[in-house]
Amino acid sequence: MSDGQSLFDKLVSSALDFERATHPNFRYVILSSPRCGSSLLAGMLTSTQQAGCPKEYLNRDYIRAYLKQSGLSDTPLPAYMQEMERRRTSPNGLFGVKLHWEHFVDIYGVKGGLKREGIDFIQSMDRVIRICRKDKISQAISYYIAIQTNRWVELPGQASNRESSSNDRIGFDPMRITSLLNALVVQEVSWQRFCRQHSIDPVDVCYETLVADYDAESRRVLGCLGLDKSMTIPQPPIKKQATELNAELRSRYLDYVGV
């Protein structure tokens, strides 16, 4: 079993479920793109135990892992989401979803646009949060490394062999990095356009601000969800993955494009 498959098996397991099934009275979605800090934000929200457990429920890898563990060959999307809501709504009634544009289009896209069900899904949310990263080149470099190593998140205390093994196999591929950079820009602009077209006023979160002032920015987001901003904010639930390799590839890329 690959690391990716194992990760999704863990993400759909009962280990992340709340002890008691609860019907949500407040739903929110985090609009994101790969390597923009959405896992850090979602992890913070999950760690409070008061904001549900926002995961990529509309990622097909997630759905496949759910079907495998449930012994099903297929399931209607509404039934699947109802099951996730039942298991992942916090006792106070909050349920969250983390959603990359690419996954949104994969599920709800049709030739020339989006299914009405997809638009309704976002518009039905009580709160929409949009997280972006200013440094798009660093985001693309991080995305490139994650794809090469198949390591997407590291938890505190988790041993990592990235420095000693995986990084040795990562070469500098400016064409691939440029392609990923373009894809990330397209995803971010697509979310911006979607919100504008459908009169959605999201709560905007900047990755750099979240990292620079984790406590204050976390409290601001909690307040936007109607939660107590004075609660104790747990330490960041995931480890920073950037290493000297990120800085090296970023420097080489900037030199390559003549910046």
Rank of each mutant, 00 (worst) to 15 (best):
K10R: 13
G52C: 02
Y66H: 11
A159E: 13
G113K: 03
H103W: 10
S32I: 13
E102A: 15
Q123W: 02
A183K: 12
S124W: 01
R219E: 10
R176H: 09
P76W: 02
L31F: 03
I107S: 02
D201N: 14
S14M: 13
Q197Y: 03
A51C: 06
R60S: 11
F95R: 03
V153K: 01
C195P: 01
R27D: 07
C132N: 10
R86M: 12
L227A: 04
M44V: 12
R250H: 05
A242N: 10
Q241A: 06
Y256I: 12
S251E: 15
S70Q: 13
D61V: 08
E117A: 06
R35D: 03
I200K: 03
Q123L: 12
L45D: 05
C53N: 07
S90E: 11
P234C: 08
W152R: 03
A212F: 02
G93N: 02
A15Y: 04
L227S: 07
V259R: 09
G93V: 07
G109E: 08
R127N: 05
Q82S: 14
I131Q: 05
K240G: 10
D228A: 08
T46G: 04
R133V: 11
T89W: 01
Y214Q: 07
H198A: 06
S2K: 06
F104Y: 04
A183E: 12
L155N: 08
R60W: 07
A65T: 01
G258C: 07
I170N: 00
R151K: 11
G4M: 15
R116F: 05
L155S: 09
L45T: 10
S124Y: 00
F172T: 09
E163P: 02
L77F: 02
V105K: 12
S179N: 13
K55I: 14
S230R: 07
V189S: 12
F95S: 09
S70C: 04
L94R: 06
D201E: 15
G258E: 10
S179R: 15
Q123A: 10
L94I: 12
K136R: 13
I145Q: 00
A15V: 10
R219P: 01
E188W: 01
R151P: 00
G52L: 03
S230E: 15
R252W: 11
L40D: 09
S14C: 08
T75N: 04
L254G: 07
C53S: 06
F121W: 04
E154P: 00
A15H: 08
P76N: 03
M1F: 02
P237Y: 09
T22K: 10
S13T: 04
S73H: 06
F95L: 13
R116C: 08
A216H: 04
I147F: 01
L72A: 03
F18G: 00
T178C: 10
P91Q: 15
L245N: 01
Q197F: 07
G71K: 04
T178K: 09
Q50I: 15
D204E: 15
F172Q: 06
S39V: 15
D61Y: 04
S199E: 13
M175Y: 05
M125K: 06
Y57S: 14
